[in-house]
Amino acid sequence: MSATATLPVRRLPEPAAMLRLIKPITWFPPMWAYLCGVVSSGVSPSGQWLMVVLGLLLAGPIVCGMSQAANDWCDRHVDAINEPDRPIPSGRIPGRWGLWIALAMSVLSVLVGYQLGPWGFGATILGVAAAWAYSAEPVRLKRSGWWGPGLVGLCYEGLPWFTGAAVLAAGSPAWPVVLIAALYAIGAHGIMTLNDFKALEGDRATGVNSLPVTLGPDRAARVACAIMTAPQMIVIALLFSWGKPLHGAAIAALLLAQFAAMRVLLRDPKGRAPWYNGTGVTLYVAGMMIAAFALRGLGT
């Protein structure tokens, strides 16, 4: 046999690669936000546990997993530069299988979302549409360092929170719930900007104008920190004004800890961004749940 003989081309996806395609590590934020919505609704989940579990599966493995598959398919050329070992550019998910998986999961998302009632169904439609608008041409909002992270922040934090509250309440959530969910969704823009650091070279080469590309790593990191900070400060002020000083103080303490982590991040934004995603972001999402319990106590 010739030493230069090539391996046979794979016709079916590798199962482990299919799991990697939908990125289980990314499911936590929307599932956590959905739980925040459930808690903040002020409605007991007793008798509605099926809706809670179904919503968690929808927010995480199904819709978020679908968005990851869609993004990997639409980003396969970028990933060939940044991370050639990813499932699609490596050939472990061959041909158009990445597209078929993303489309099948889009249909599954809509079918499951329909089981959550009109509010859950509407939120699911919006989430699926946003996932494709973020990644796919001709819209491809991820080309913008402002619109792209904003859309992802909305779908990762704000929309699942709203959905969890709406499903439990069987109607539109109270305005304080919507306001707090929106503030945390805005702050998540900064988290998504930090996530863009890992794709800096590929984004620059393929015309994706992320903030690390357009502003440079140092300025982009400072902007991300400011965007993460401002909404949390507003949340703290609102909780104090709503008679929830202990909850507000707890979130303030978490924000102070984030400031310490931000100082480390800003010394080496590109190198420290993954570290911050495991430390500062954990503090951020802990504050979300504290705020959710505060809203529950408002009796809204």
Rank of each mutant, 00 (worst) to 15 (best):
R267N: 13
A69M: 07
G171M: 14
S210P: 15
H247R: 11
R92N: 05
V63I: 09
R10Q: 11
R204Q: 09
A286R: 10
P61Y: 01
A273G: 04
P217Q: 09
M289S: 15
L58T: 06
G42Q: 10
R96N: 15
P8K: 13
A170Y: 11
G117Y: 01
G91I: 00
G42I: 13
L116F: 05
G278W: 08
I101S: 08
G190W: 00
W132L: 10
A182K: 11
A136G: 13
S109D: 00
L111T: 04
L141D: 09
V235F: 15
E83N: 15
L255W: 03
V63T: 06
R20A: 13
R263Q: 15
L179T: 11
S135L: 06
Q232K: 13
L35S: 09
Y114M: 12
P87H: 04
A16P: 01
V53Y: 14
G47R: 08
I101Q: 08
V213Y: 02
C225V: 15
T4Q: 15
Y34G: 06
L266I: 14
W275Y: 10
K244N: 14
W275T: 10
I290M: 11
C64V: 15
E137T: 09
A170P: 06
W97H: 02
P138E: 11
A237S: 11
W27Q: 04
A250P: 00
S46M: 14
A286I: 10
L200T: 07
A188V: 03
I186H: 11
M233A: 14
T4D: 12
V178E: 08
A5W: 12
M105G: 01
A104I: 00
G37N: 07
P245D: 15
G153P: 07
W119A: 05
L159Y: 04
F240I: 04
I22P: 05
S40C: 06
G60W: 03
L283Y: 04
A130R: 05
A250C: 12
I234K: 08
R96C: 10
A224L: 11
P176A: 08
P94A: 09
G47S: 08
W119K: 09
G158W: 04
D196R: 01
L256S: 08
I101D: 04
F197C: 02
M51C: 13
V178C: 12
L238V: 14
G158H: 10
T279L: 12
A131E: 00
W132S: 07
H77T: 03
Y184C: 02
V235D: 01
M51T: 11
A17M: 10
Y114E: 03
R143M: 08
W27E: 07
L255Q: 08
D72E: 12
W242V: 09
A253V: 13
G216H: 05
I62L: 03
W119I: 04
